[in-house]
Amino acid sequence: MAKFINPFTDIGFKRIFGQEISKPLIIDFLNSLLLGEERITNITFLDKEQPALFEDDRSLIYDIYCQTEKGENIIVEMQNKSQPYFKNRSIYYVCEAIARQGERGTDWKYNIDAVYLVAFLNFCPMDFDKKFRSDIGLADKGNNKLFSDKMRMTFMQLPLFTKEADECDTDFDKWIYVLKNMETLTRLPWAAKSSVFKRLEQIADVASLSRQERMKYDVGLRKYRDTLSVLEGAKQDGLAEGRAEGRAEGRAEGRAEGRAEGRAEGRAEGIEKEKIETVKRLKAIGADINMITVATGLSAEEATRILSTL
């Protein structure tokens, strides 16, 4: 039995990042993410004003919505499977959170607060660059200068994070390592020296769940694993179908290539046989090497080669 909860389940993710007692954890994570840009000292969890997308399968995608003391709105999201039109969906999600800040009347001066999307991706979208972290904002294409700080999206492709514990130099690396490997760990590597990771160790311990929480977590974990099994089955079926189609196409292509090669070889053999017969006839009437090359268009080397076989 795992000692720590799986953060890729809805219950696990919300327990680590989405409750009042875990505020120090999400603040520490966001500060490690935004290191050198700003410092968050407090957040407020918000009731999501917009309906969550993809409610039909919460084992695939879930999020929390919070606001910093400076008014920035931050959506922290965990996704276990790519969605169609994924980039457009992400842009729409952020823009919807911005648009809902609008107020009626002529006095409103478009004084919008920034919206950040921080997305953990438990997969690698095919149209993303093959790198662990991507930070997307609004910038001038000519000089790459920031155009506006009101919208930002940070995507973290977890399969592309390959560091081991002893290679994690920054707090951000440590966070990602723990989240990616939590369910297989028997202890958190930095809990003895960090109050934040010590708190995470306590909150994420399966034994700390109440009976009701444990029942919900077990249901969520089963659903998460079942979903991944279905997705993996579909992937394997697709691979098998692709291999079968590939073999059939290969056989058809092989036959076509074989016929083409056979025709080409046959033509080459016929030409070679014709050359030999021509040289043979010319030799029979006493033609020398010079006459043979002139009459046949063969090089001296090729004519000599054929004559040596006669």
Rank of each mutant, 00 (worst) to 15 (best):
N88G: 05
L46N: 01
F17W: 02
E213D: 13
T41C: 14
K145H: 05
D173G: 03
S59N: 06
L53G: 11
L209Q: 06
I176P: 04
M215N: 15
D56S: 11
F45A: 12
K23T: 08
S32Y: 03
A192T: 15
P189M: 02
K131Q: 10
E249N: 14
S59K: 04
M156P: 06
P84E: 01
T41E: 12
N73C: 04
F132P: 06
L158W: 04
T227L: 09
E38P: 14
E103D: 08
D129M: 07
D140G: 08
I5S: 06
F13T: 01
S308M: 00
P84H: 05
Q101S: 00
Y217S: 12
L221F: 04
R214A: 13
I43P: 06
S82Q: 13
K223Q: 14
P84N: 01
S229D: 12
M1D: 08
A234Q: 13
R225W: 07
K130A: 09
A234I: 14
R305E: 12
L221V: 00
Q79H: 11
Q50P: 00
N144W: 14
M151S: 11
S82H: 13
L200Q: 06
E257V: 00
M1Q: 08
A284F: 11
N88M: 01
K87W: 10
N6W: 01
D113V: 05
Q236R: 14
L117C: 02
W108L: 00
R104V: 09
Q83I: 01
G266T: 06
L60V: 11
D218R: 04
S229F: 10
D226I: 10
D288P: 07
P159V: 14
G142L: 09
L33Q: 09
A295W: 07
Q19N: 08
K198S: 15
I306T: 13
L231G: 08
P125F: 02
D218L: 03
I285Y: 12
